[in-house]
Simulated scan of single mutants.
Amino acid sequence: MNDTTRSPAGEALTDLILSMFRVNNLTLTWGDRLVAAYGLTSARWQILGAIVNADRAQPVAWLARDLGANRQNVQRIVNDLHEDGLVVFEPNPHHRRAHLVVLTDKGQLAYDAAIRAYNPRVNAMTEGLSLEDIQTAHRVMAALRERLDGELDAEKRD
């Protein structure tokens, strides 16, 4: 097979990737509407979630890595969260310039409100989908993420 011909699996993966693009856009719009009342956007909510779910306070670069996002974009959003009093910066004992990002009480309240709005909506969205299908989709997405990370890492080395 030459490089210009897609295999059946390659065609199926292309269809999946195109669907992922569409789902991503729809998910962001849906999330923006869901959390707007709490002064959040999908991007802000995602970063608050990364902070909440981290084992300990992290600098922006680590949050970006965990999210698979661009550090500069995460920094911009964290700065906005800071301006709104949802996070604060604390000294990092391991790095003088890379401050730790810490959720404030106001940030925790906004995150908790967003989750309270999200849970019933996501539960309703599962209707007609089996747990097994959802778990399979997650495994496929995780494998694809791992392969894409590997390709990007290889490009950095070249």
Rank of each mutant, 00 (worst) to 15 (best):
W45I: 06
H99R: 11
A54H: 04
R6N: 08
E83V: 09
Q46E: 05
H94L: 13
L100Y: 04
F21N: 09
R6M: 11
L131W: 13
S19I: 12
D133V: 12
D133C: 09
R139V: 13
E127F: 10
H82Y: 14
L109K: 06
Q108N: 03
V52Q: 13
N2I: 07
N70C: 06
L103A: 08
L40W: 08
R44M: 15
H99F: 10
L81Q: 15
L26C: 04
G85F: 11
V140Q: 02
N53H: 14
I115Y: 07
S7D: 08
D133N: 07
A69K: 06
R96Q: 14
D66Y: 05
G39A: 09
V101P: 00
L86M: 14
Q108F: 04
L48R: 08
A43W: 05
Y111G: 03
V60W: 00
N53L: 10
K106H: 03
G107V: 10
L81E: 12
P59G: 06
G31P: 00
R6V: 03
T126G: 03
G85S: 05
L48Q: 11
E11R: 10
R65A: 04
G128V: 07
A113N: 05
T41P: 02
M125G: 07
R96T: 13
D32R: 01
L100V: 03
L48M: 10
R97L: 14
N70Y: 12
E83P: 01
V52C: 05
M141R: 06
R56Q: 08
